[in-house]
Nucleic acid binder design. Structure first.
Length: 897
RNA sequence: GGGCGGUUAGCUCAGCUGGUUAGAGCGCCUGCUUUACACGCAGGAGGCCGGAGGUUCGAGUCCUCCACUGCCCACCA
């Protein structure tokens, strides 16, 4: 383990490190929390990916965020449970297996239900855990011992229990009504599973003659002329003066030659089309409702297979879009087609297969969720939970979207005509009139004892079981320890695209079943898009495989790239540049660590590295003060779910403060051996930084941490892994304003000299003599002289007191780093007038700033109304600018001319 | 039709409750094989924070309107 520093590879090798480290974590049982009353529970239920799923960047984003939160809370001492799962994904999985069968020339009907389900289970056994293994590559610290599948006995019992309870309450019911039907998937869909797309279509104006033979007619407009075969009425608005005299009369439906009534219904939009609507209650939602109100007949002319039915007369058996063309043609030949206009409207498509959805009448199961303003209803309680703040959403704007959805919610069609899924636990007895809902499988009728029972053939919408997920995974309906301890869960984290599908359902079902909310906070992340901002999709071919990216950049870099520089709820683009930046950062951390560990080689005087009891040196006090400031900022960012902000802060601290400045300063002390050794501080800052970074970059931090700890004397309890080490907390006494101010001055002076060199093209290695007037900071500058000399290559450096510049310094450049004045005698390199011009430019700038601040500070309104610390800041700035202006004026006057 | 975002440096984006001279990464320009790192170091250029009003001592940040753009919802016959 304690390899020589020389044996530490020059670059971090993700591929060899990561699987090994992950295995160690898992073997140690770190992912599996105990139910521990002395700890605070923290629980995230992972959104269960589909068993058919391959890890994509959306999963990777989900996992990166959830893992970071879990690792952070675990290090904070919570009993952190991240519970993984998988979803049986009814339609998606059935499709995959049916496609495989099709390759054998078989359909599921050839196999029969039982054999088919066996095949699906075989498929799941063989391929269903791909995504789990992929999650492990991401470093997911989830508790695999608690892994749940939606069809496992536990969740299945939860589904049946819920169904039976709701059935017994009368909230789940079976009804014949108009639903969304996908002819390709041959199943009913919920409203949510229909996606509307703007489509260029036609608006057909069809003339229906009056039945009285008067020669009069009424013209209706439709985008689906074939549906007229099922018309059972024509509706007009009751206030529409054009049609007053037609209401109550009959018209003749062309082609079908069927008399149908003209009715008045207020749902009509008088402005639209001709103001008259053909009513097809069998195939249109609005028409269905009008039909119900007006007592119109329902005729089904489109069948479940998408072909026209016998009720369509001579069009029976014709495919629906073919029928559209043929009906339009026939209407035209009959002279009933008044006109056809181009028309853009939105058409519903099946979310799964993209076929055009057909509204039709069918016998289905529904869940009555009630109204949002009924506090006793499912929707009402789900509404209240968010409205009253029991459940908080991040970002908050999604609360309104959610509430608005619930305010318009309708009953949920929960039955699907599939085989793969939770079969509806209802049996029909040949001898009894009422269906029987039962948690246990029935073999005989509980009412009459008859054995002629038939179970409902349908399965439940996949989202029905998903809706129970937070409590069903924890053991409900049993009163399990996990349920008591981890429920309500802490955070639900997922993409905003499933706010209605999943989040809303979990809130509804969670409260219904347990009486308590399923989670306290909902964190919604955005969609991962490609570099051009396009949605990633397989058909577009613009998907990036996270595993490829891991191979190229490393897991930590991928995770960092996905979660830095983004805000909750905002879509993000993943680009090569971001991935490279993240990888470079990982490399930076690795090399900083390599440097520190090289320094530790063979050292013995490292006592106190873990808590640095007495810091003498200004630079040490500075970096520790900065470290603690960052520690506070990172903690606060995490508390408010601002992961990107936390990582940004850490990035800047590591790269700028620690690497660019502290390590460079420490090198000088290490070389000279003068003053206290910076090694304990280097070790301390590195070790804490690793812990701060660990939730975001778990692998590289663990690998370095193990290496580092092996080189450091044991002080206090030493955990076996960084992932169970405590998350760093700031120690207020270490905040050191003075050290920060002094080191800042030193850095500014160094920058000023470097800048001058670059401007004047003076080679970096050519030593320049310099004088510093260190008004009030003599001691600090004298003590930091070595650093200033080394980092800006000034040699020799003369520190002057007060305002007594050596006269020979006047032929050169004077840098005002208020309150310091740095003089670089550069005879011949720069002429007096150019220098004078430069200084006057600076003075100009300073005066402008001074005027602005003076204005502010002298404004009584500002003094009265601004926060005291703001006033104080501005006053300080005023003094400093006054000072700077005075210095510049003096210097310019000394230049003469 | 209703609602919600976005519009900040050439590109991709941060900027939380209004308070220094608005930041980062990438890209660009100038120098550097400085023994942790060229996946690097040092220096630099580049922004009327979409437009117009308003509130305020003070606005990228709050309010109103407008423009462009993306998304969500809706029974657009």
């Amino acid at each position: 383990m304690t390899a020589n520093a020389s044996q530490i590879p020059r670059a971090y090798n993700a591929a060899s490190v990561e699987p090994r480290v992950y295995q160690q974590w898992q073997d140690q049982g770190y992912f599996t929390p105990d139910v521990d009353p002395d700890k605070q529970p923290f629980c995230i239920i992972m959104p269960p990916p589909n068993v058919t799923g391959e890890l994509h960047l959306g999963h990777a984003l989900t996992a990166s965020i959830e893992d970071a939160l879990c690792r952070w809370r675990r290090m904070m001492g919570d009993a952190a449970l991240w519970l993984p799962g998988k979803d049986h994904a009814g339609i998606a999985t059935q499709w995959v297996v049916e496609r495989l069968l099709a390759e054998e020339g078989l359909s599921r009907h050839d196999l029969g239900r039982e054999k088919f389900l066996e095949r699906v289970w075989e498929w799941v056994a063989q391929y269903g855990n791909t995504i789990d293994e992929q999650h492990k590559r991401l470093g997911a610290s989830c508790d695999w011992s608690r892994l749940r599948f939606t069809l496992d006995p536990g969740p299945a019992l939860a589904v049946r229990t819920t169904f039976v309870n709701l059935y017994n309450k009368g909230l789940i019911y079976r009804h014949e009504r108009i639903i969304n039907w996908c002819p390709r998937c041959a199943t009913a869909l919920s409203d949510l599973e229909v996606e509307y797309e703007e489509t260029d279509g036609k608006l057909y104006h069809i003339k229906y003659p009056l039945a009285d033979g008067s020669g009069g007619s009424i013209t209706v407009a439709t985008t689906r002329p074939e549906s007229m075969l099922g018309d059972t009425g024509v509706a007009v608005h009751p206030d529409d003066s054009r049609y007053q005299d037609l209401v109550g009369r009959q018209v003749i439906l062309p082609i079908m030659e069927r008399p149908i009534p003209v009715v008045a219904d207020a749902a009509l939009d008088m402005e639209f089309g001709t103001g008259a609507l053909k009513v097809t209650p069998g195939h249109d939602l609005l028409d269905f409702e009008i039909g119900e109100r007006q007592g119109l007949e329902i005729i089904n002319i489109i069948g479940f297979d998408g072909n026209l039915t016998a009720a369509a007369g001579k069009y029976a058996g014709v495919e629906r879009f073919q029928a559209r063309r043929e009906v339009a043609a026939e209407l035209e030949s009959l002279g009933a087609l008044e006109k056809v206009e181009d028309y853009n409207h939105s058409v519903g498509h099946c979310q799964r297969c993209d076929a055009v959805v057909e509204p039709l009448i069918s016998l289905q199961w529904f869940l009555n969720v009630g109204k949002h303003d009924d506090p006793a209803s499912i929707a009402g309680r789900a509404h209240a939970a968010v409205a009253n703040g029991d459940i908080k959403m991040v970002p908050d704007r999604f609360s309104r979207v959610y509430l608005n959805w619930l305010e318009n919610i309708r009953d949920w069609c929960i039955s699907r005509q599939l085989w793969w899924g939770h079969r509806i636990p209802v049996w029909y007895c040949a001898a009894c009139p009422d269906p029987i809902a039962s948690i246990d499988d029935l073999t005989g009728c509980p009412n009459c004892g008859a054995e002629d029972l038939r179970q409902d053939p349908d399965v439940l919408d996949t989202w029905f079981s998903s809706g129970l997920w937070p409590h069903s995974t924890l053991g409900w309906p049993d009163d399990s320890d996990d349920l008591g301890y981890f429920y309500p869960t802490t955070v639900m984290e997922t993409g905003y695209d499933i706010l209605f599908f999943w989040i809303a359902r979990m809130i509804m079902m969670g409260i219904e079943n347990t009486g308590d909310i399923p989670f306290r906070t909902v964190y919604l992340h955005g969609l991962v898009r490609d570099a051009q901002g396009a949605k990633m999709s397989k058909t577009r071919g613009n998907t990036l495989d996270p595993l490829d990216l891991i191979e190229l950049y490393g897991t930590d870099a991928l995770r960092f790239a996905l979660t830095t520089g983004t805000a909750p709820g905002n879509d993000l683009r993943i680009t090569e540049g971001k991935l490279e930046a993240a990888r470079n950062f990982a490399n930076k951390v690795w090399n900083a660590a390599r440097y520190v560990m090289t320094g530790l080689e063979g050292q013995t005087a490292l006592e106190g590295w873990s808590d640095l009891p007495a810091l003498e040196h200004r630079e040490d006090r500075w970096i520790v003060s900065r470290l603690d400031r960052v520690t506070v900022e990172v903690g606060e960012a995490l508390e408010s779910f601002e992961l990107g902000e936390a990582q940004q802060k850490l990035y800047e601290f590591v790269w700028n403060d620690f690497c660019d400045w502290y390590i460079e300063m420490a090198k000088i002390r290490l070389r000279s051996g003068v003053g206290p050794s910076p090694l304990p501080v280097l070790a301390h800052v590195l070790e804490r930084t690793l812990r701060l970074l660990h939730p975001f970059m778990p692998f590289i931090t663990e690998e370095i941490w193990q290496n580092l700890m092996a080189r450091l004397p044991s002080e206090g309890d030493r955990p076996a892994s960084i992932m169970i080490a405590p998350y760093p907390q700031a120690q207020p006494p270490r905040a050191d304003r003075q050290a920060e101010e002094e080191v800042n001055l030193v850095m500014q002076a160094i920058r000023a000299v470097r800048n001058t060199r670059a401007q004047l093209r003076i080679p970096a290695d050519r030593p320049l003599p310099a004088q510093v007037q260190a008004d009030g900071f003599q001691q600090a500058i004298e003590e930091e002289a070595q650093v200033i000399q080394a980092l800006s290559r000034v040699e020799p450096l003369q520190v002057l007191s007060g305002d007594s510049p050596a006269s020979d310094a006047m032929n050169g450049v004077t840098l005002v780093v208020n309150p310091l004045v740095v003089r670089l005698p550069l005879e011949g390199v720069i002429d007096l007038s150019a220098e004078r011009q430069r200084l006057e430019g600076e003075l100009d700038n300073a005066r402008k700033n001074l005027a602005r601040v003076e204005n502010l500070v002298s404004n009584p309104n500002f003094r009265a109304k601004a926060k005291p610390e703001v006033v104080q800041n501005e006053e300080e700035r005023f003094r400093s600018l006054t000072d700077q202006t005075r210095r510049l004026e003096e210097i310019i006057s000394q230049l003469g001319g």
